[in-house]
Protein backbone atom coordinates (compact mmCIF):
# COMPACT_ATOMS: atom_id res chain seq x y z
CA UNK A 1 0.00 0.00 0.00
CA UNK A 2 1.21 3.51 -0.68
CA UNK A 3 2.67 4.95 2.50
CA UNK A 4 1.72 8.52 1.64
CA UNK A 5 -1.73 9.50 2.85
CA UNK A 6 -4.42 11.14 0.79
CA UNK A 7 -5.31 14.71 1.60
CA UNK A 8 -8.89 13.48 1.91
CA UNK A 9 -8.48 11.01 4.76
CA UNK A 10 -11.89 9.45 4.04
CA UNK A 11 -10.42 8.24 0.74
CA UNK A 12 -7.77 6.29 2.66
CA UNK A 13 -10.40 4.86 4.95
CA UNK A 14 -12.51 3.71 2.00
CA UNK A 15 -9.56 2.03 0.29
CA UNK A 16 -8.47 0.35 3.50
CA UNK A 17 -11.99 -0.83 4.27
CA UNK A 18 -12.33 -2.49 0.86
CA UNK A 19 -9.00 -4.24 1.20
CA UNK A 20 -9.88 -5.40 4.69
CA UNK A 21 -13.00 -7.00 3.19
CA UNK A 22 -10.82 -8.82 0.63
CA UNK A 23 -8.64 -10.20 3.40
CA UNK A 24 -11.66 -11.30 5.38
CA UNK A 25 -13.10 -12.99 2.30
CA UNK A 26 -9.74 -14.67 1.66
CA UNK A 27 -9.64 -15.97 5.22
CA UNK A 28 -13.12 -17.48 4.89
CA UNK A 29 -12.30 -19.14 1.56
CA UNK A 30 -9.01 -20.57 2.84
CA UNK A 31 -10.81 -22.07 5.83
CA UNK A 32 -13.54 -23.48 3.57
CA UNK A 33 -10.97 -25.23 1.35
CA UNK A 34 -9.17 -26.85 4.28
CA UNK A 35 -12.39 -27.80 6.08
CA UNK A 36 -13.99 -29.28 2.98
CA UNK A 37 -10.90 -31.41 2.23
CA UNK A 38 -10.79 -32.47 5.88
CA UNK A 39 -14.49 -33.41 5.76
CA UNK A 40 -13.79 -35.54 2.68
CA UNK A 41 -10.89 -37.41 4.23
CA UNK A 42 -12.43 -37.96 7.65
CA UNK A 43 -15.98 -38.50 6.26
CA UNK A 44 -17.27 -35.76 8.54
CA UNK A 45 -20.72 -34.87 7.19
CA UNK A 46 -21.31 -32.27 9.87
CA UNK A 47 -18.18 -30.34 8.92
CA UNK A 48 -19.19 -30.60 5.25
CA UNK A 49 -22.54 -29.08 6.09
CA UNK A 50 -20.87 -26.19 7.92
CA UNK A 51 -18.69 -25.49 4.86
CA UNK A 52 -21.79 -25.40 2.64
CA UNK A 53 -23.55 -23.00 4.98
CA UNK A 54 -20.51 -20.71 5.32
CA UNK A 55 -20.39 -20.01 1.59
CA UNK A 56 -23.24 -17.52 1.95
CA UNK A 57 -20.96 -15.17 3.89
CA UNK A 58 -18.38 -15.34 1.08
CA UNK A 59 -21.00 -14.46 -1.54
CA UNK A 60 -22.26 -11.58 0.60
CA UNK A 61 -18.74 -10.21 0.95
CA UNK A 62 -18.24 -10.29 -2.81
CA UNK A 63 -21.42 -8.22 -3.26
CA UNK A 64 -20.28 -5.79 -0.62
CA UNK A 65 -16.84 -5.41 -2.18
CA UNK A 66 -18.33 -4.74 -5.61
CA UNK A 67 -20.73 -2.17 -4.19
CA UNK A 68 -17.97 -0.41 -2.28
CA UNK A 69 -15.63 -0.44 -5.28
CA UNK A 70 -18.35 1.04 -7.52
CA UNK A 71 -19.04 3.67 -4.89
CA UNK A 72 -15.37 4.54 -4.62
CA UNK A 73 -15.09 4.93 -8.40
CA UNK A 74 -18.22 7.09 -8.55
CA UNK A 75 -17.43 9.34 -5.60
CA UNK A 76 -13.65 9.58 -5.57
CA UNK A 77 -12.69 9.25 -9.24
CA UNK A 78 -9.58 7.26 -8.36
CA UNK A 79 -6.57 7.47 -10.69
CA UNK A 80 -3.34 5.55 -11.18
CA UNK A 81 -2.57 3.22 -8.24
CA UNK A 82 -5.88 4.01 -6.53
CA UNK A 83 -7.77 3.17 -9.71
CA UNK A 84 -5.89 -0.09 -10.05
CA UNK A 85 -6.73 -0.92 -6.44
CA UNK A 86 -10.43 -0.39 -7.16
CA UNK A 87 -10.24 -2.53 -10.30
CA UNK A 88 -8.21 -5.34 -8.76
CA UNK A 89 -10.37 -5.73 -5.64
CA UNK A 90 -13.33 -6.50 -7.91
CA UNK A 91 -11.42 -9.13 -9.86
CA UNK A 92 -9.90 -10.68 -6.77
CA UNK A 93 -13.32 -10.81 -5.10
CA UNK A 94 -14.68 -12.64 -8.17
CA UNK A 95 -11.81 -15.16 -8.02
CA UNK A 96 -12.30 -15.74 -4.30
CA UNK A 97 -16.04 -16.18 -4.76
CA UNK A 98 -15.34 -18.88 -7.38
CA UNK A 99 -12.92 -20.64 -5.02
CA UNK A 100 -15.59 -20.50 -2.33
CA UNK A 101 -18.05 -22.15 -4.72
CA UNK A 102 -15.56 -24.92 -5.51
CA UNK A 103 -15.03 -25.56 -1.80
CA UNK A 104 -18.78 -25.70 -1.28
CA UNK A 105 -19.08 -28.16 -4.17
CA UNK A 106 -16.29 -30.26 -2.64
CA UNK A 107 -18.21 -30.38 0.63
CA UNK A 108 -21.37 -31.39 -1.22
CA UNK A 109 -19.64 -34.23 -3.04
CA UNK A 110 -17.93 -35.34 0.16
CA UNK A 111 -21.32 -36.10 1.75
CA UNK A 112 -22.11 -38.41 -1.22
CA UNK A 113 -18.66 -39.98 -1.06
CA UNK A 114 -19.02 -40.60 2.69
CA UNK A 115 -21.47 -43.38 1.80
CA UNK A 116 -19.14 -45.10 -0.66
CA UNK A 117 -16.04 -47.19 -0.14
CA UNK A 118 -12.81 -45.19 -0.32
CA UNK A 119 -10.67 -45.25 -3.48
CA UNK A 120 -7.22 -46.05 -2.16
CA UNK A 121 -5.69 -43.04 -0.44
CA UNK A 122 -6.98 -40.58 -3.01
CA UNK A 123 -8.87 -38.62 -0.33
CA UNK A 124 -5.52 -38.04 1.40
CA UNK A 125 -4.01 -36.97 -1.92
CA UNK A 126 -6.85 -34.53 -2.43
CA UNK A 127 -6.39 -33.12 1.05
CA UNK A 128 -2.67 -32.56 0.37
CA UNK A 129 -3.55 -30.88 -2.91
CA UNK A 130 -6.11 -28.69 -1.13
CA UNK A 131 -3.46 -27.74 1.44
CA UNK A 132 -1.06 -26.74 -1.35
CA UNK A 133 -3.74 -24.62 -3.02
CA UNK A 134 -4.70 -23.00 0.24
CA UNK A 135 -1.04 -21.99 0.68
CA UNK A 136 -0.97 -20.56 -2.84
CA UNK A 137 -4.08 -18.53 -2.12
CA UNK A 138 -2.69 -17.32 1.19
CA UNK A 139 0.58 -16.26 -0.44
CA UNK A 140 -1.28 -14.56 -3.31
CA UNK A 141 -3.31 -12.53 -0.79
CA UNK A 142 -0.20 -11.75 1.29
CA UNK A 143 1.49 -10.57 -1.91
CA UNK A 144 -1.58 -8.41 -2.53
CA UNK A 145 -1.66 -6.73 0.83
CA UNK A 146 2.11 -6.15 0.86
CA UNK A 147 2.27 -5.25 -2.86
CA UNK A 148 4.95 -7.93 -3.16
CA UNK A 149 5.64 -8.69 -6.84
CA UNK A 150 8.30 -11.32 -6.06
CA UNK A 151 5.94 -13.37 -3.93
CA UNK A 152 3.29 -13.02 -6.65
CA UNK A 153 5.75 -14.36 -9.23
CA UNK A 154 6.50 -17.23 -6.87
CA UNK A 155 2.78 -18.08 -6.67
CA UNK A 156 2.60 -18.15 -10.47
CA UNK A 157 5.50 -20.60 -10.58
CA UNK A 158 4.20 -22.82 -7.79
CA UNK A 159 0.82 -23.37 -9.46
CA UNK A 160 2.67 -25.93 -11.57
CA UNK A 161 3.12 -28.18 -8.54
CA UNK A 162 -0.64 -28.22 -8.04
CA UNK A 163 -1.11 -29.08 -11.70
CA UNK A 164 1.28 -32.00 -11.31
CA UNK A 165 -0.59 -33.28 -8.25
CA UNK A 166 -3.76 -33.16 -10.31
CA UNK A 167 -2.13 -35.02 -13.21
CA UNK A 168 -1.09 -37.89 -11.00
CA UNK A 169 -4.50 -38.09 -9.29
CA UNK A 170 -6.09 -38.13 -12.73
CA UNK A 171 -4.04 -41.21 -13.64
CA UNK A 172 -4.91 -42.93 -10.37
CA UNK A 173 -8.64 -42.39 -11.00
CA UNK A 174 -8.30 -43.75 -14.54
CA UNK A 175 -6.59 -46.87 -13.22
CA UNK A 176 -9.26 -47.48 -10.55
CA UNK A 177 -12.06 -47.05 -13.08
CA UNK A 178 -10.42 -49.42 -15.56
CA UNK A 179 -9.89 -52.03 -12.82
CA UNK A 180 -13.45 -52.05 -11.53
CA UNK A 181 -16.42 -50.24 -13.10
CA UNK A 182 -18.08 -50.08 -9.65
CA UNK A 183 -15.49 -47.45 -8.78
CA UNK A 184 -16.69 -45.15 -11.52
CA UNK A 185 -19.24 -43.16 -9.48
CA UNK A 186 -16.81 -42.41 -6.67
CA UNK A 187 -13.97 -41.73 -9.08
CA UNK A 188 -16.07 -39.31 -11.10
CA UNK A 189 -16.92 -37.34 -7.96
CA UNK A 190 -13.30 -37.40 -6.81
CA UNK A 191 -12.11 -36.34 -10.21
CA UNK A 192 -14.45 -33.33 -10.25
CA UNK A 193 -13.12 -32.41 -6.82
CA UNK A 194 -9.50 -32.68 -7.94
CA UNK A 195 -10.24 -30.68 -11.09
CA UNK A 196 -11.96 -27.98 -9.05
CA UNK A 197 -9.01 -27.73 -6.68
CA UNK A 198 -6.74 -27.42 -9.69
CA UNK A 199 -8.98 -24.55 -10.88
CA UNK A 200 -8.61 -22.87 -7.48
CA UNK A 201 -4.86 -22.90 -8.09
CA UNK A 202 -5.50 -21.06 -11.37
CA UNK A 203 -7.57 -18.48 -9.49
CA UNK A 204 -4.71 -18.01 -7.01
CA UNK A 205 -2.46 -17.43 -10.01
CA UNK A 206 -4.98 -14.94 -11.35
CA UNK A 207 -4.86 -13.05 -8.06
CA UNK A 208 -1.05 -13.06 -8.21
CA UNK A 209 -1.27 -11.56 -11.71
CA UNK A 210 -3.59 -8.86 -10.37
CA UNK A 211 -0.90 -8.04 -7.78
CA UNK A 212 1.64 -7.61 -10.57
CA UNK A 213 -0.81 -5.39 -12.48
CA UNK A 214 -1.52 -3.37 -9.36
CA UNK A 215 2.15 -2.70 -8.67
CA UNK A 216 3.57 -2.41 -12.19
CA UNK A 217 0.58 -1.00 -14.04
CA UNK A 218 0.78 -3.82 -16.59
CA UNK A 219 -0.02 -7.52 -16.63
CA UNK A 220 3.00 -9.86 -16.63
CA UNK A 221 4.38 -10.24 -20.15
CA UNK A 222 5.80 -13.76 -20.00
CA UNK A 223 3.30 -16.57 -20.57
CA UNK A 224 2.69 -18.80 -17.57
CA UNK A 225 3.91 -22.40 -17.71
CA UNK A 226 0.91 -24.71 -17.87
CA UNK A 227 1.26 -27.94 -15.91
CA UNK A 228 -2.16 -29.51 -16.47
CA UNK A 229 -1.64 -32.11 -19.21
CA UNK A 230 -4.82 -34.12 -18.69
CA UNK A 231 -6.52 -32.47 -21.68
CA UNK A 232 -4.19 -34.50 -23.90
CA UNK A 233 -3.97 -37.67 -21.79
CA UNK A 234 -5.29 -40.95 -23.28
CA UNK A 235 -7.25 -43.73 -21.59
CA UNK A 236 -4.15 -45.79 -20.80
CA UNK A 237 -2.60 -42.81 -19.06
CA UNK A 238 -0.17 -42.06 -21.90
CA UNK A 239 0.01 -38.79 -23.82
Amino acid sequence: MQSEKHIASAFDRDLEAIQAMIMKMGGLVEAAILDAAQALESRDEELAERVRAADKAVDALEDQINTEAARLIALRSPTAGDLRTALTVMKIAASLERCGDYAKNLAKRSTVLAHMSPIGDTAGGIRRMAKAVELLLKDALDAYIHRDVELAEDVRRRDREVDQMYNSLFRVFLTHMLEDPRNITACMHLHFIAKNIERMGDHATGIAEQVIYLVNGAMPEDPRVKGDITSVTLLDGSQ
Binding site: Q2, E4, K5, H6, I7, A8, F11, P78, T79, A80, G81, D82, L83, R84, G217, A218
Partner: peptide
Amino acid sequence: IFTNPKDPRTESYITGRIG
Protein backbone atom coordinates in the same frame (compact mmCIF):
# COMPACT_ATOMS: atom_id res chain seq x y z
CA ILE B 1 -0.50 9.83 -17.06
CA PHE B 2 -3.80 9.04 -15.35
CA THR B 3 -3.56 5.26 -15.21
CA ASN B 4 0.12 4.54 -14.94
CA PRO B 5 2.28 7.62 -14.32
CA LYS B 6 6.02 7.00 -14.37
CA ASP B 7 7.06 9.60 -11.79
CA PRO B 8 6.04 9.09 -8.14
CA ARG B 9 5.36 12.84 -7.82
CA THR B 10 2.83 12.65 -10.64
CA GLU B 11 1.16 9.68 -8.97
CA SER B 12 1.03 11.51 -5.65
CA TYR B 13 -0.54 14.56 -7.24
CA ILE B 14 -3.19 12.89 -9.40
CA THR B 15 -4.24 10.54 -6.61
CA GLY B 16 -4.68 13.50 -4.26
CA ARG B 17 -1.68 12.96 -1.99
CA ILE B 18 0.21 16.22 -2.49
CA GLY B 19 -1.39 19.60 -3.00
